[in-house]
Nucleic acid binder design. Sequence first.
DNA 1: ACAAAAGTGTTAAGAATACACCCATGT
DNA 2: ACATGGGTGTATTCTTAACACTTTTGT
Lengths: 225, 225
Amino acid sequence: MYTAEYVPPTLVVDSVIFQLIDGELNVLLIQRGADPFKDWWALPGGYCAAGETTQGAMARILERKGGITIKQLQHIEQLYTFDTVARDPRGHAVSVSYMGIGLDLAPQQGSHTQQPHFFPLSALPDLAYDHKDIIEYARTRLAAKLSYTNVIFALLPPTFTLTQVQAAYEAVLGRELDKRNFRKKFLSFDLIQETDEMLREGPHRPARLFRFKTNGLQHLTTRFD
Amino acid sequence: MYTAEYVPPTLVVDSVIFQLIDGELNVLLIQRGADPFKDWWALPGGYCAAGETTQGAMARILERKGGITIKQLQHIEQLYTFDTVARDPRGHAVSVSYMGIGLDLAPQQGSHTQQPHFFPLSALPDLAYDHKDIIEYARTRLAAKLSYTNVIFALLPPTFTLTQVQAAYEAVLGRELDKRNFRKKFLSFDLIQETDEMLREGPHRPARLFRFKTNGLQHLTTRFD
DNA sequence: ACAAAAGTGTTAAGAATACACCCATGT
DNA sequence: ACATGGGTGTATTCTTAACACTTTTGT
């Protein structure tokens, strides 16, 4: 397949797994059990072997190291391939990065790692490799995608209130939105429909529950923001 | 660096090199000299070795196979990593793809290939591998970037008329724009300044030449379109 | 004089923004 | 009764879209 003198770089896959916890965007990290960066927090990642797609490798590694299956993720997309020679002290490792988004993800102890853990983006520990850059890249991509896709569905439960949708937008964009304008605009996309359920959860008026008309990523015909 | 039983996929880099010719977006192709896909047209591409960045590999391969140096390119960006196992019949090859944009590129015969050639996107030959998908991905990305960056500079000469700018937008977007509205909007970005030169090239009123205030990619604060 | 592209403004419709009060509930 | 978050409409500003004629040149 390639000549004797051709030695490819190591190919690795790193995953940025997001979910909302308490209205904040959180990312899944594992604590490394071996050098380099032993005991540092890092994105779940690992080798991609010949014959395995990068997304296949992502699924295998996430399950083994993060205790999460990709069926729990409502959206997955490839982000960028990080390839600087110095990013891994052991030698040249090219990293294909992915973003995955889920809901109520409860990571399990992986067989090769310490307990994986979700951290809010506002309180990340020091990170191994260039993983801080990768997370920042993912957050920027997700924020951009809010404005031209329905990707918000991946952060929300099957039924949800408009206040929850707005809170999810605000968590990703990192700024507050006007309640009346947000509802008018978001409803105009025609992505969701009322259910006949209400959410009662406090000493205040119950909130209407909605659901998405279709799941799966779609491009908006009109932009948000 | 990796254990004996770990065999990485081959890592290759494929480049989509665009330039405008006669008001149409063209892409650089080479004719393959060996199997697989012998004599088919393909994107210039080749192996990336350990210790070499993917962009470094791109530069080396473009020069060798396409007769173009990356210094001739006014913009380069990574696109996507194509990794399906079946995309190369010889075995699993993961392709990191790049888009490069230049001007007056005159490809030279490469040492390992037939004469490279620019083809308009509207008249592409059959292409090897998944290279048609890669070109389509690049065109879509470029069209999207027109609306939120100044990337149009990469398609234009150092001085240019507003009609040329509009024609470049139209070539990438694949649709016509209103002259008065285009000029008003584009000038409002404040990216360009008048020169005191005029372009005379026919039996009609000469056109004012402009230049960009800064080269290099910038995000627009307001969107086009 | 004619053909060809350059250059230029106004109007109307639609979208974005700013903004404040009443409603339904649990305690 | 009160505290809490749910729910709703309008006026203003800004942006977009549609549209046609005059100017300057080469032949």
